[in-house]
C-alpha cells in the first residue's frame, strides 16, 4: 500500500480517488499509518483506509481468501459511472507495479474523453498515437502502430 501512497500525487493529478481495503480494523489502520506508513511516505497515506472485517466485501469482489482469512491483492479501476474497467488480482507474495495502474488509468481516461472514438493500443502511454475507430482501419493498424514501439 505504501507504493500506492507514494504515487498519491499522480492519482490526485488524474482526479482519481484511491481507496485501500483490508480485513484489518480501522484501529489497526490508524496505528499502521502512525507507526510505519508515515515513515515510508511523507505525510502517510492520504486516502481512506477501509476495514473489511470478515471479508464480506472481498468475497463479493472475488478477492477474499477463506483459508487465510484475508483479501488477496485485488485492484479495480472503476469509472465515474461506477463501471469496473479493469481488474488485476495477485496472490500475496508479489506486489503490484503502481506505474502500470497509472498508465491504464490514463488510457481509460483518454478513451472516455474521446467518447470511445479513440482506443489505446498495447503499451500506449500519453503522447503516443491512439487508434481512431473506423471501418477503414481494419487491416491497416500496422501502418500506424507496431509492437514494441
Amino acid at each position: 500500500m505504501s507504493a500506492v501512497a507514494g504515487k498519491a500525487e499522480e492519482f490526485k493529478k488524474l482526479d482519481v480517488q484511491v481507496l485501500s481495503c483490508s480485513t484489518d480494523s480501522r484501529f489497526v489502520h490508524k496505528i499502521w499509518q502512525e507507526q510505519e506508513l508515515s515513515k515510508m511516505v511523507d505525510g502517510g497515506v492520504p486516502f481512506p483506509m477501509l476495514s473489511d472485517a470478515g471479508g464480506k466485501i472481498g468475497t463479493v469482489y472475488g478477492v477474499y481468501d477463506e483459508a487465510g482469512g484475508v483479501n488477496v491483492r485485488g485492484r479495480f479501476i472503476i469509472d465515474p459511472d461506477g463501471i469496473i474497467q479493469a481488474i488485476e488480482i495477485l496472490t500475496p507474495p508479489v506486489g503490484r507495479k503502481v506505474a502500470e495502474s497509472i498508465r491504464q488509468l490514463q488510457a481509460f481516461q483518454h478513451v472516455r474523453a474521446t467518447k470511445g472514438a479513440e482506443v489505446c493500443p498495447a503499451g500506449w502511454e500519453p503522447g503516443k498515437p491512439t487508434l481512431k475507430v473506423h471501418p477503414d482501419l481494419a487491416g491497416r493498424v500496422w501502418e500506424i502502430w507496431k509492437p514494441d514501439e
Partner: peptide, 18 residues
C-alpha cells in the same frame, strides 16, 4: 464517489512485508 474515477485496492494486511 460516483462521478469520479476510483482506484480500489485490496491487500492482505497492514504491517505485512510486500
Amino acid at each position: 464517489y460516483l462521478g469520479k474515477w476510483v482506484f480500489l485496492c485490496f491487500y492482505p494486511g497492514d504491517f505485512t512485508f510486500v
